[in-house]
Simulated assay, not measured.
Amino acid sequence: MDEGVHPATGQEPRRRTRDRRGRGMRGPGVVPDWPGTPALRTARQKFDQLVLDVVTPLDEKWQRHLGLVEYAVEDAPMLPDDWGDETVPLSSLVRGKGASPTRLVIFRRPIEHRATNRDELEAMVHTVVVEQLAELLGIAPGQVDERYTD
């Protein structure tokens, strides 16, 4: 008989694993590329990158007309207690005065709440940014980016 086969049952013994008590895998599921950095990006980091991917080509295209614009991502807008049943804003545009730049803030949580998948999230971020830039430039959103749809 083969070694490792139980003489009475004829089966090989089960290997013991680190999951002896059914608590799941131990240790990281993914090893980072660079020590000391997380291997997986957080939802916030993914959203920030998405906004950056949308804003960069539009800002490069319209930089001459826009002037200095700061783009930011915040989790949620600060709403007054008496806000009521009005919809939560997806972004905020504060026009610059003098030396202060114009500031376009995208609110992550309201946008994520409305999107059901990654494609919708990308489309919604694109729509919000294009509409805000169109307002800033005083032109129709379709002129800012030809991919814009109502």
Rank of each mutant, 00 (worst) to 15 (best):
L58Q: 02
F107V: 07
E70D: 11
V88M: 11
L79C: 14
S92C: 12
E86I: 00
R95Q: 11
E70W: 05
D75S: 13
S91C: 10
P101D: 12
W83S: 11
E70N: 11
P57V: 08
E60G: 11
A72F: 11
P77K: 09
A72H: 14
L58T: 03
G84L: 08
E86N: 07
I106L: 14
L66Y: 01
G96K: 04
R95E: 13
E60T: 10
Y71G: 00
W83L: 07
E60C: 00
G84H: 06
E60Q: 15
T56F: 12
T102V: 02
P89S: 03
K97I: 13
D59E: 12
D75N: 13
D82F: 09
W83P: 09
K61C: 04
D81W: 01
G98D: 09
S91T: 04
E74L: 15
G84K: 08
T102W: 03
P101I: 09
E74G: 09
D82K: 04
G96N: 05
V69Q: 03
V105R: 15
V73R: 06
G96S: 06
G96L: 04
K97S: 12
Q63E: 12
M78F: 05
A76Y: 14
V105P: 07
D82E: 13
T102I: 02
F107P: 08
A99G: 01
P80K: 05
P101H: 10
Y71S: 02
A99M: 02
Q63P: 00
Q63F: 05
E70F: 00
T87C: 03
K97M: 11
H65F: 08
V94K: 15
K61Q: 15
G67T: 04
E60V: 07
A76H: 13
S92I: 00
R64D: 07
D85G: 12
G98M: 06
V69C: 01
P89T: 02
G98S: 05
L66I: 01
L93P: 02
P57S: 07
V69S: 00
W83C: 10
I106W: 06
E60F: 04
V88D: 10
P80W: 03
G98I: 07
G96T: 03
T87W: 09
D75L: 03
D85S: 13
T102S: 12
P77I: 10
P89M: 02
S100I: 01
A76G: 00
M78I: 10
D81Q: 12
E86H: 05
D75M: 02
D75G: 14
G67M: 05
R64V: 03
V73T: 14
V94I: 13
K61Y: 04
D81R: 13
L68W: 05
G98R: 07
D59H: 12
V105L: 09
S91R: 08
E74F: 08
L58S: 02
P57H: 05
P77F: 04
K61R: 15
P57K: 10
E74I: 00
A72D: 15
R103K: 14
S92P: 00
P77Q: 09
S91Q: 05
S91V: 06
V73C: 11
F107L: 06
E60W: 01
V73M: 08
I106R: 09
L68E: 15
L104M: 10
V88F: 07
P101C: 11
S91Y: 07
